[in-house]
Amino acid sequence: MDKKDLFISAIKDNESFIYKIASVYTNTIEDRNDLVQEIIYQLWKSFDSFNQKSSLSTWMYRVALNVSLYQLKLSKKRISTIPIDEHLLNNRETDNSENDEAWKLFKQQIDNLNLLDKAIVMLYFDNKSYDEIAEIIGISKSNVGTKLLRIKEKLKSQINKTR
């Protein structure tokens, strides 16, 4: 298997997370697609430097989160883009419309978390173990547990407030 095939196979395995994380960090489909492109580009660019100290998936998650964080900085330097509702209204090429409403509610809750908690909870939702979350985020396993408890409490209280 050559480098390109290996990369495509790795992207296939983690594509779902890349799209989801890009959807969390952006507000329009255009911005999301830009971010997905940027993540895949940065992954490809540093694919050679992947040192196998961690698993390929762990490394990809880490790069994806870091690029998203960087993109946030970039987006603040640009003129604000079209809000999501208007875009959805005018663009037929939307995501699965059945899930749009649920996703909107999901984003409302997640957006209230800080950048660290947001990343931890996304990895938790993606069924990553505490060890993997600790490795991707760069904090101790016990710290992951403590933070997740606090995040769950915060989300519960947020959800209760919106009822």
């Binding site: 495509i8 992207i11 594509e15 779902s16 799209y19 989801k20 959807s23 697609n33 997905v36 895949i40 090429e93 995501d95 699965n96 899930n99 649920a102 996703w103 509610l105 999901f106 809750q109 997640i110 996304m122 939702f125 993606d126 769950k152 989300l155 519960k156 959800i159 919106t162």
Partner: peptide
């Protein structure tokens, strides 16, 4: 919306075939 609903929403967010083509 419960915490489990949030998790389900995350899992149900699927990647469309059209987007996969863009990726490749």
């Amino acid at each position: 919306m419960e915490l489990d609903d949030l998790k389900n929403t995350w899992h149900n967010r699927s990647v469309q075939a059209q987007q996969q083509n863009v990726t490749f």
